[in-house]
């Protein structure tokens, strides 16, 4: 199982670094950040937080684009290019394939995250002359854990929806929606009329709360690190949802006809 999954994952990672997407996104992020870093605001060169905020925003957008688009095309591309046939003719089950694709996309986005956060470290350190490494590591870790959840979710979407593009669009809206309003849904619900109120509350408790993993504000405003216990609980919470999505993916994919 692990052997096969790792072999599949290796292919996904190779694909990521042989395609141009990552480089394009990284160069764009770096370019925009550096350009904004050159802007002079009232002759004060110690202003840093706006730059950190924008750099982190770009990193988040880029990482979500990489994770979602890479994952969304994996299984559809295997089917479209018919590479799935020689693969499944080997001693490799559909479950191995799903898990391998998950690991591959997750590791690949993790690798790109490391590059992005290293860049962020350099930028913020150059401006502020301080390196709060613990909270940076926490941010990287939580971000990566979040991507596990995202990748598993998109993987499920990729076998439910026909086209990778519609899948990525739907997933994107879902993810960004949760990040923006997920935390407020309960408060919104209690201001609503009854039938809708229950529906919104149920949604609130059912969705994966991706906003936990976004500690950009803490970094931007130089606040102290998160408690390790909170990080741990958040990690367990994400693993739960990831496992749920992976199992659902496997169950749907197991019965899926490959020739249709």
């Amino acid at each position: 199982m692990i052997n096969n999954a790792l072999a599949v994952a290796g292919i996904v990672i190779k694909e990521l670094y042989r395609r141009k997407d990552f480089y394009v996104l990284f160069v764009l992020t770096a370019l925009i950040t550096l350009l904004l870093g050159c802007v002079n605001f009232f002759n004060d060169d110690r202003i840093a937080r706006y730059l950190k905020e924008i750099c982190l925003l770009l990193i988040w957008i880029s990482s979500l684009i990489i994770a979602v688009t890479t994952t969304a095309r994996q299984i559809p591309a295997e089917r479209e290019n018919r590479t799935i046939f020689p693969l499944l003719a080997k001693p490799l089950t559909r479950g191995h394939l799903v898990f391998g694709k998950f690991l591959g996309c997750w590791f690949a986005s993790g690798l790109s995250l490391v590059v992005f956060y290293f860049f962020f470290c350099v930028v913020s350190g150059a401006r502020e002359h301080q390196w709060p490494l613990l909270i940076y590591l926490q941010a990287l870790w939580l971000h990566w854990i979040l991507l596990a959840l995202v990748v598993a979710m998109v993987l499920l979407g990729s076998i439910m929806f026909a086209a990778p593009s519609s899948n990525s669009t739907i997933c994107f809206i879902f993810i960004v929606g949760i990040l923006l309003v997920g935390r407020h849904l309960h408060r919104i619900a209690i201001q609503l009329q009854e039938p809708i109120r229950t529906i919104v509350s149920v949604i609130y408790f059912a969705i994966p709360h991706l906003e936990f993993y976004d500690i950009r504000e803490m970094i931007v405003h130089n606040l102290p690190p998160i408690s390790m216990l909170a990080c741990l609980i958040a990690t367990v919470y994400a693993i739960g949802y990831t496992a749920f999505f992976l199992i659902a993916t496997w169950l749907v994919f197991r019965r899926k006809s490959l020739t249709a």
Partner: peptide
């Protein structure tokens, strides 16, 4: 069949061999 376009023949065989 089209194989993984971004691999070389050698890497393709190595991948299947690993399985």
């Amino acid at each position: 069949t089209y194989y993984y376009k971004f691999l070389s023949a050698e890497e393709l065989l190595r991948f299947y061999g690993k399985i």
